[in-house]
Design a protein around this nucleic acid. Structure first.
Lengths: 191, 191
DNA sequence: TGGCCCATGTAATCTGTTACATGATTGT
DNA sequence: ACAATCATGTAACAGATTACATGGGCCA
């Protein structure tokens, strides 16, 4: 499922402009999907071409007219069709974890900073989800399910990082693979 | 960071053929990275061209020679460089969660089946991690860190799904948006 | 008047996925 | 005899990222 289906899903909840969709994705969908303008606008264009969405035009602030998209009856049908047949692929693509895997090859301070950064990312996503829950109190069951799962996962990740960071950093400092081959005998047992 | 860097990382741990790398990725890296042959082989080719890895050739079972790659000194330098500057991007791309978000538009049985499938995926990844831990007992601190984090996250996800699936399914059955527009007056307030 | 937010879109580029092609060895 | 596993690679395609282009309104 690509950005096109993502937009169709979002529009089935509530009409929006492309710009608004991006914001919504960042605020509420960020923990399981990302999409930039470069994929959102072409996706909306294609959806409109195939009649799955339509739009009202109004004079926007920029040089181009602003378009507020909404799903059509045909779009609803297509959406149900896609939902009924799509595979539930779930993949994580994390440079962060790859970096952690290679922690031995980095300076401990760098590792520490990376964890810090990740914790901040997680916390801002958690805040966004908290806000969404407050704003949109009785959302559909599916939306709440995903929101709760997101909060649980993010919370668990943050907690793990906070609890284990010291263990990791200590281990790295004890066995300094990362330091340039000048200072060798910290353990007193190098060649 | 792309498949190229991923391969460089994996080869810095231990030499391997392209085929073996894929297996390793599936078994131990699956919870945070995926790569198919179509990206692994070209990546290894490029790495070899730029001198970051080298390989021994032996007569393999297939029509082509088998190449076992290992990282070079220059490769180690390049790797450290990349590790020192890379951004810790972490992104989830989950059709599964998007489907759950749209649960109202599906039949409850379908939602149930999707959750089932996901739980099985998680469990097989957990098994792979458990096996890796048993096999490779005292791995570097970074590797253990990532392995433990993976187990924690996967375990949390599985538990959440098991605990909340009934609540979700019940909610869906109570308010059948998913059924064709025949039965309207369940809430008694349709147009 | 300088910068940020709103707002849409295109084009070049990068990367990954999928399908295809090839074929020996080992186990059932 | 058949299937699975081992094993490498290419080519076509799909999709996303990035940078660019445009410009009004609002706030300090």
């Amino acid at each position: 499922m690509d950005t096109e289906t993502l937009c169709l899903c979002a529009l089935s909840v509530e009409p929006a402009t492309g710009y608004e969709l991006k914001q919504r994705f960042e605020q509420v969908y960020a923990h399981f999907y990302v999409a930039g303008f470069g994929s959102i606008y072409p996706a909306l264009g294609k959806l409109a071409d195939s009649g799955l969405v339509e739009f009202d035009v109004s004079r926007g602030p920029g040089p181009r007219p602003r378009k507020r998209y909404r799903i059509t009856a045909e779009g609803e049908r297509a959406l149900r069709e896609r939902l009924a047949t799509a595979e539930p692929v779930h993949r994580v693509h994390s440079d962060f974890l790859l970096l952690m895997l290679m922690a031995e090859h980095m300076e401990p301070a760098r590792v520490d900073a990376l964890i810090d950064k990740r914790v901040h990312q997680i916390n801002s996503q958690l805040e966004a989800l908290e806000k969404a829950r407050a704003t949109d109190a009785d959302a559909p069951a599916g939306v709440e399910f995903v929101r709760d799962l997101g909060q649980t996962m993010l919370h668990t990740a943050a907690e793990f990082l906070q609890t284990h960071r010291n263990t990791l950093i200590s281990a790295l400092e004890a066995e300094p693979d990362h330091i340039d081959p000048r200072s060798e005998s910290i353990n007193g047992e190098s060649a």
